[in-house]
């Protein structure tokens, strides 16, 4: 594009007012903003928390994308039907499912093993979106740590235990889907 191109719109900087021309009022304005925040921090306290001492409050736990869990149905069975939609949707390819013939009459398949590599996961929540039976969900557990890589690869039992741990504080988000239950 050339400088004389008619498509270029030339914008002039806005004219300065008298106080802006004097510079110093603007300096006072900037200083006022700083002092206002300082005063705010001293009177109302900071907006941050001292993390290991106090836990942050998570705004809406149902929206938060933390560690995964595998939901159970009323009979305590894994709700997953091994449809592979989550594994397909996963952009990080961190979900590994081995499907098997279901021992129960109400569905065809169930996951023999269901493994999520939490180190690979980017916590995008696509698996949660994709799941037709609301079997996989992201909880609000944010402080996920481990001492080895193996420890961070969550198998089915571990994912179900996450459900057992969080089912009271975070109810399942939706029961609208079909499948089990």
């Amino acid at each position: 594009m050339k400088p004389d191109d008619p498509a270029i719109r030339w914008i002039d900087p806005p004219e300065l007012t008298l106080s802006e021309q004097l510079y110093l009022p603007l300096f006072a304005q900037g200083l006022t903003t700083t002092m206002r925040h300082w005063k705010r921090t001293w009177t109302e306290g900071p907006v941050t928390v001292s993390y290991p001492d106090e836990e942050p409050t998570i705004g809406n736990p149902l929206n938060y994308r933390g560690v995964h869990r595998l939901n159970r149905d009323e009979q305590g069975r894994v709700q997953c039907v091994a449809c592979f939609l989550c594994a397909t949707a996963c952009p990080a390819h961190c979900i590994d499912i081995v499907a098997a013939e279901s021992p129960w009459p109400d569905r065809d398949k169930y996951p023999e093993s269901f493994t999520i590599d939490e180190l690979r996961c980017i916590f995008c929540g696509m698996c949660e979106e994709a799941c037709p039976v609301d079997a996989i969900e992201l909880t609000s557990l944010y402080n996920l740590t481990g001492r080895s890589r193996e420890e961070m690869i969550f198998d089915k039992e571990k994912l179900l235990s996450v459900y057992d741990k969080t089912k009271d504080s975070e109810p399942m988000q939706s029961r609208s889907g079909g499948g089990a239950s």
Binding site: T34, H37, W38, R40, T41, W42, P46, V47, T48, S50
Partner: peptide, 13 residues
Amino acid sequence: KLAAWVQDRIGPN
């Protein structure tokens, strides 16, 4: 500390 206060933080404590 001052930077923290101005930015609504706690600072080194």
